[in-house]
Design a protein around this nucleic acid. Structure first.
Lengths: 341, 341
DNA sequence: TTGAAAGCGCTAACAA
DNA sequence: TTGTTAGCGCTTTCAA
């Protein structure tokens, strides 16, 4: 192995010089074009191995105009198991097509402009397409990018201003089903612990909840609705306050998994007989010491579905934009017998 | 917005023609070189906007030889919260340096050759460097790649055959500390539920366990060691069999989080008073209805540390390879009062 | 079957 | 301040 030129990778020229052939011949061998004399080909392969030649994909893609075999995934919070399962679904779909995945994730909150910049950066890199889990805002600036051949699929929220494919959860239906289940179980006072309602999926979830409550003839009680919560700790505190009411809820519905976490803690701490319902199932839910009614779905499949749609588009599908809704199911889990602290 | 040429992105030439200047001038404007007359510059910017011009990074990097501002992360199981936290740590370190992250993940088991192919693919893409969470095997084929300027940092396992940086957990020390804690609590019969011992971190964990047991004068009992377990279900079954022994263990140590999950289930199902110990903390561990002694660490920091080392190397650090050990702590958690099914 | 020339979209080096 | 020329590493085209 020639290691004399650290930092400089050998090019076709170097291989050609060593093998005593033209660069085009080396190119043919490297790309396994069959029209090369076997004797020459093996000489070339030897030179390739000796130099540790590794084709420069940037150069080859540039010249050939071939796709970069890269897709992007733009999301916020990859540490949430919900998003990491989605990522896994996308990753395995990509791998099945020998495509690499750029995950443009960020832990902190980024604003709308930064998110667009991330997307534009992926465009400059000429990804073949991307999946966006949007944080919200106006995405019309993406229209030209899509029209110029970078297909995008939106996950978890459909941007009305854009004619793109989107893959969504049945947010309203799932929440509705959870509340229906609680009503069936005889609950009438149901606390609601919510995230920011401006986030479309969260707003939809509240809509589903309200529909179910209306149909059951349960009146709104402002004391039983807290919104704008962003982490387990604040959900825990909000739930604790609710449980301190003169007429506390017998069940609490949480808009997403992080909030469920906090509410479960609050319920357990007081040894309350409260049922906790919520969007998103989670690992260990079967062992959590409070009764749970969860809206579950296959997050990995959710990501894979988005990737499949994206690869259809990359493959040339020009049919009208689709809106795919992934179904949810209700899972009753948790430990029914409660424990005292 | 000119949308007449779907699929073909405008180039510097198109912008130059529209603005009536040379391509170099457009290049200057796009790259914010200050020596351009403001009148011309604004005319160019207008043309850029009108055409939706987006520079081709492949071309610019090729010509300028600039780094691709991309790093790779090669791992197996991104769905495990352990790996997704690592990914988040790497991702935020990358974002802080305006670098994109390619996560070459795979859910299925890939063999050594496939893993190397993934790495070589990243080399062909000319990533600036990569972090590898190795599945095991011989990595000496990577030596030329490293020497030619693609720095690599290994995470979770150090390949002896390579002079690379590695970032490791204190596997032996953490396990040892967990067993020490159990011994302190009076346990002498401690079941061991292990993954494949050939995986270096897992082997190390067993070593730590054995050291602690030896020092405490506890003799090996082959009935109390099960190895080769790969998922919660098989760990659950193995634990159930152990608990059925005439002289069952009073504590069970698990080599990693998925196994802990299964063992917790088995212990809870029988209402056994067994303490469950294990490597890796997890969300909700505080609410799991069995007493837990967990080896905890900051997985996000673990990933960030690897990324920091990598960026040092990318920045030109040529000092001898380092081996960084990330510390662990012991967390006693879980619910002490047990519940009956 | 092999190779020479041109050029992908861009920037470096230099000239005007 | 602006433009021209050459060329990054590769593939395409076409000729030998």
């Amino acid at each position: 192995m020639d290691t004399t030129r650290e930092g400089r990778r050998p090019t076709l020229h170097d291989v050609a010089a060593l093998a005593g052939v033209s660069i085009k011949t080396v190119s043919r061998v490297v790309n396994e074009v069959s029209t090369v004399d076997e004797g020459i080909a093996s000489r070339v392969r030897e030179a390739v191995a000796q130099l540790g030649y590794r084709p420069n994909q940037l150069a080859s893609r540039l010249r050939s105009g071939a796709p970069t075999a890269t897709i992007g995934l733009v999301l916020k919070d990859i540490s949430n198991e919900f998003y990491s399962s989605i990522t896994l679904g996308v990753a395995s779909a990509a791998r099945a097509r020998s495509t690499q995945l750029i995950t443009a994730a960020s832990d902190e909150d980024i604003d709308s402009a930064e998110e667009l910049d991330l997307i534009f950066d992926l465009c400059r890199r000429r990804v073949d397409g991307m999946i966006v889990i949007p944080r919200g805002g106006d995405y019309s600036a993406l229209r030209p990018e899509i029209e110029m051949g970078t297909p995008m699929v939106f996950l978890d929220r459909h941007p009305e201003e854009l004619a793109v494919d989107s893959v969504l959860l049945d947010n309203a239906g799932g929440s509705r089903a959870a509340i229906d289940r609680l009503i069936e179980q005889g609950h009438r006072r149901i606390g609601l612990i919510f995230h920011e309602l401006e986030l479309e999926p969260i707003g939809e979830r509240l809509r589903g909840v309200r529909d179910a409550l209306d149909d059951a003839g349960v009146a709104d009680d402002p004391e039983l609705l807290v919104t704008g919560l962003r982490d387990p700790q604040s959900a825990r505190e909000a739930a604790a306050r609710m449980l301190d009411l003169d007429d506390p809820p017998t069940a609490i519905f949480c808009a997403y998994n992080r909030l469920t976490e906090g509410v479960v803690t609050a319920v357990w701490e007081r040894g309350a007989p409260t049922v906790v319902a919520g969007f998103d199932d989670f690992r260990f839910s079967a062992l959590v010491p409070v009764p749970l009614v969860l809206v579950a779905y296959d997050a990995q499949r959710y990501g894979r579905t988005a990737a499949d749609v994206l690869f259809d588009r990359i493959g040339g599908d020009r049919s009208p934009a689709r809106r795919i809704v992934v179904p949810t199911t209700i899972v009753e889990t948790g430990l029914r017998a409660t424990v005292r602290p």
